[in-house]
Nucleic acid binder design. Structure first.
Length: 875
RNA sequence: GGGCGAUUAGCUCAGUUGGUUAGAGCAUCUGUCUUACACACAGAGGGUCGCAGGUUCGAAUCCUGCAUCGCCCACCA
């Protein structure tokens, strides 16, 4: 056989990708039973996000495990999906095509968008908008597909899915309707966390705290029927007009006399009750807290508990809304706030109406300062955490709106229990999940006031005045799913009844993107369409994901599996760490420190990139270090060279002469004895998803035992002219061990191992044509090889070799320099062991005469006295 | 404030139930073209295992406290 001189990774990548695609080795076989299968709930990457090296990292991890399981004989279900649903795609479409969605516009089938259009954004219907999203993501998905393919991901592309396609929309809407039927979903009008830029509700899982500078403003409230003042400390003076009560701690003696009276807010002169509440902290600020609608979550609690009036002043767009101050005593109604001095209150409010909160805050403080009696003492600067939408740029507000919710607060204990039934890798991540569940403080807000998402599949009746009757929902039949209630009409109605009195209207909202992502197992298993297939795939075996989305993707998936089937969605969660840049910052697009993946693969090869990923243990954040790519590339080169050499040593020997029973020398048996625990440990580690350990074991043995020692020691025997027993033994060992090692590295470096495999092993009757379909090595393959006569043979031989090498290195001569004599001193017990491998050692190091004597060894296994042959004088 | 994790050689990291002299790769230095590989091989130097206690015949490993870093959560008047 003519083996190539040099290895070209790019050429090999192309060649094997075509071959794998043609042979369909990664296809799932639906006829196999559940027990024979290994089922993966693959994370669908956000296609509109940028590709960076972190993707290569965590996606490689899945593939290592999957490839191992495939070699263990499992029928692999390894789908791939794209997360194209949601805000990132919306934003891309808006920017790219300069359009904006206005949900109630009618669909225009002839609308064409143009890229790079300038001027005002064109308003279009939701259906048009969604069509554009669908177009844009096609290109993104191509880029991802190409990258994953090149990285060597062993996906079954027949199982490709997307979170916005028809199938996912059907699944997601089906889930919504089933949970509605089960009374696990409800709608409610209540204050919800609201992003004023995206103008949508968001859920607890999407919150992010950010430290922001702020200040305590000390503001004097009047007390009805008294000259005394109550000083409130507030960080949100702009909410003064929305104040509905003032609270003090029941045991706070300073304020005990005020409880039960009314306080008068300054500037607006609104009388509000002074109440005692244990949640008012006497240590905080002045111990007097003003309740506003709404400054924070505690305000909501107090507002609910005391049935306080609603004085919403912050609008959905973040501007201060129009409100009117009216004479105190007028019954409370929407948009009217009772004041003791409506004229002056309206005058002050008119300066802040229509402003953003930040500006309004400045104006209120200015008005207070101007007034002269309002500010009690200078403001105190502080920094505190403020809640943001994780993708948002301005703090969230609490705005009362009607939203759909999934009941989760009543299931916290059960959900923690579900978490315990799942094996988390690494194990401690389970605590993170449990901690999150225990800390939940609200039901899951499902509805989003956005466009590119799965529509909420609900219509409502309108009464004779054209008002929406939210209690009279009209639901689609399951066979009609997916539906868009804004462009389709419910059964029994005609399109012209839309938005007409006594007609119907469609729910304009879409579902939280996680409401669909959380169904990734059900989407992949085709839960709605094919119950039998679903049964075969669910619960799944493995969910790989990042630890940053435990509270979202993992959590919500567990929720859905529990609500629908009282099941866990998978048996194992495998969590990758993050990639940090060399300064140990998380690599992310917003930080501007991302490394793009393609050039890396060009430079080092896909195998080397995968090797880098394989070195990182699960859950551990890893810094981006180019040196590791180089090491990976070296391993690939080494494997190429060593394989070429090893195979070259035995390829001329008839295959029937290279059977395990031919392995007869002490050294050969000792080397195999060294391999057995490596196989056992690597297999055990891999079964526990610890691919890094498996790689380390295989790589360590390959480099040190196989290449640096065994090949060197055994190769002289392979040069014997006759087919002696010793030569056959060496050749059989080289082959048997090599054939196992290549397979142990195949999950990590699939290209080079497939290349090497094709040189000879693909023809072995007990192996498959592709290494990736061949069985993972087992001890059975070595069962015919007896244990060495002495358990220390290998270690003793290496110890002796090292000592003689050191003698040569100290003498600054070549390793090939001849040695006249070597006197090897070993402990009595090891004399026989060293003698058993002495021939190989002598031939390897060119030792003329070697003597083994028994003696006392203080450190290590042996000492050696070496006499080097005289070096011929240079001419 | 609560929780989780980390802290081992200049750097990146292993170290599996407590057990000889704590390992690897990279980097550094020295040597070697040796019938696979100089993208290699051989050799050397380099660590009081974050700190302080404790348990033990024996601790990087177990316990307690502390420090530093990271992450998650809470606090938000």
């Amino acid at each position: 056989m003519d083996l190539p001189k040099k290895y070209d990774p790019q050429e090999a990548e192309q060649k094997w990708l075509e071959s794998w695609d043609a042979s369909g080795i990664y296809k799932w076989d639906p006829s196999k039973s559940r027990d024979e299968s290994f089922v993966v709930d693959t994370p669908p990457p956000t296609v509109s996000g940028s590709l960076h090296v972190g993707h290569l990292f965590s996606y490689s991890h899945q593939d290592f495990i999957v490839r191992f399981q495939r070699m263990m004989g499992k029928n692999i279900f390894f789908p791939i999906g794209w997360d194209d649903n949601g805000l990132p795609t919306e934003r891309r479409v808006q920017n790219l095509l300069n359009v904006k969605c206005e949900a109630h516009l009618p669909y225009d089938p002839d609308f064409k968008a143009e890229r790079g259009k300038k001027g005002n954004a064109t308003p279009i219907s939701r259906k048009n908008f969604v069509e554009l999203c669908d177009e844009v993501i096609v290109d993104d998905e191509k880029a991802f597909k190409q990258l994953w393919t090149r990285l060597g991901m062993s996906y079954d592309w027949d199982q490709e899915y997307a979170t916005i396609n028809e199938h996912s929309r059907r699944t997601s809407q089906y889930s919504f309707l089933e949970l509605l039927e089960k009374d696990e979903i409800y709608q409610a009008e209540r204050p919800v966390m609201w992003d004023v830029d995206f103008q949508t509700a968001i859920a607890q899982a999407e919150l992010e705290d950010k430290e922001r500078p702020s200040a305590y403003n000390f503001i004097r409230f009047g007390v009805e029927g008294s000259e005394e003042k109550l000083v409130v400390a507030t960080t949100r003076p702009e909410l003064l007009p929305a104040c509905v009560a003032v609270l003090v701690h029941p045991e706070d003696k300073r304020y005990a006399d005020f409880v039960g009276k009314n306080a008068i807010s300054p500037l607006f002169e609104v009388p509000v009750p002074i109440k005692a509440d244990a949640k008012a902290d006497p240590e905080k600020g002045t111990g007097v807290v003003m309740v506003c609608t709404f400054g924070d979550q505690t305000d909501v609690e107090w507002w609910t508990a005391y049935k306080l009036p609603l004085r919403q002043i912050i609008g959905r767009d973040g501007h201060l809304m129009a409100v009117e101050f009216v004479a105190a005593g007028t019954p409370e109604q929407h948009g009217k706030i009772p004041s003791l001095n409506p004229d002056s209150a309206n005058a002050v409010y008119s300066t802040i109406q229509g402003k953003y909160t930040k500006q309004a805050q400045k104006l209120v403080i200015a008005a207070a300062e101007e007034n002269g009696t309002v500010i009690d003492r200078p403001a105190e600067n502080i920094t505190h955490a403020v809640k943001f939408f994780e993708k948002g740029e301005r703090p969230l507000e609490l705005v009362p709106t009607r939203q759909w919710y999934t009941k989760i607060m009543d299931k916290k204990e059960a959900l923690v229990g579900q978490g315990k039934k799942i094996k988390w890798h690494p194990e401690y991540m389970e605590k993170r999940y449990a901690h999150w569940v225990e800390g939940l403080n609200q039901d899951w807000c499902l509805s989003r006031q956005r466009y590119f998402g799965v529509p909420i599949p609900v219509w409502y009746r309108l009464d004779e005045h054209g008002e929406v009757r939210y209690d009279q929902t009209i639901l689609p039949t399951l066979k009609d799913l997916p539906i868009d209630p804004l462009s389709e009409c419910p059964q029994g109605f005609t399109a012209d009844q839309r938005d007409q009195p006594n007609g119907f209207t469609g729910d304009p909202d879409v579902l939280d993107t996680w409401a669909t992502s959380s169904l990734s197992p059900q989407v992949a298993s085709q839960w709605v369409e094919d119950k039998e297939r679903h049964q075969k795939l669910f619960p799944m075996d493995m969910r790989p994901q990042g630890h940053d989305i435990i509270r979202t993707w993992a959590f919500y998936t567990i929720v859905k599996a529990y609500l629908h089937e009282k099941e866990v969605p998978w048996h194992n969660v495998v969590l990758s760490g993050w990639i940090l840049d060399p300064d140990r910052k998380k690599m992310s697009k917003s930080q501007g420190n991302v490394v793009t993946p393609e050039p890396l693969i060009d430079q080092f090869g896909a195998d080397a990139v995968r090797y880098w990923a394989a070195r990182a243990r699960l859950g551990v954040d890893t810094s981006f270090d180019e040196k590791v790519f180089k090491v990976g590339k070296k391993l690939v080169t080494k494997l190429f060279n060593a394989s070429k050499f090893a195979i070259g040593r035995f390829e001329d020997v008839p295959a029937d002469q290279l059977t395990p029973d031919k392995i007869c020398t002490e050294l050969d048996r000792a080397v195999i004895a060294q391999l057995r625990p490596v196989i056992e440990k690597a297999t055990a580690a891999f079964k526990e998803f610890d691919y890094a350990q498996a790689l380390s074991l295989a790589e360590g043995y390959f480099w040190s035992v196989y290449c640096d020692n065994y090949l060197e020691m055994a190769k002289q025997r392979t040069y014997d002219e006759a087919l002696t027993a010793e030569r056959l033994s060496a050749c059989a060992t080289l082959r048997l061990v090599h054939r196992a090692l290549v397979r142990m590295m195949a999950p990590f470096i699939p290209y080079i191992t497939e290349e090497v495999w094709g040189w000879t092993y693909s023809n072995d009757s007990d192996m498959a044509t592709s290494i990736h379909k061949s069985p993972w090595p087992t001890l059975d393959e070595f069962a015919a090889v007896p244990a060495p006569a002495h358990s220390t043979s290998y270690d003793a031989a290496v110890a002796v070799v090292e000592l003689i090498r050191k003698a040569k290195a100290d003498a600054a001569v070549s390793m090939a320099a001849p040695v006249e004599s070597a006197t090897i001193t070993v402990a009595e017990a090891n004399v026989a062991a060293v003698e058993a491998t002495l021939d190989d050692i002598q031939r390897m190091l060119k030792i003329e005469t070697a003597t083994v004597v028994a003696g006392t060894i203080e450190i290590g296994l042996a000492t050696v006295e070496t006499v080097l042959a005289p070096v011929p004088a240079a001419e």
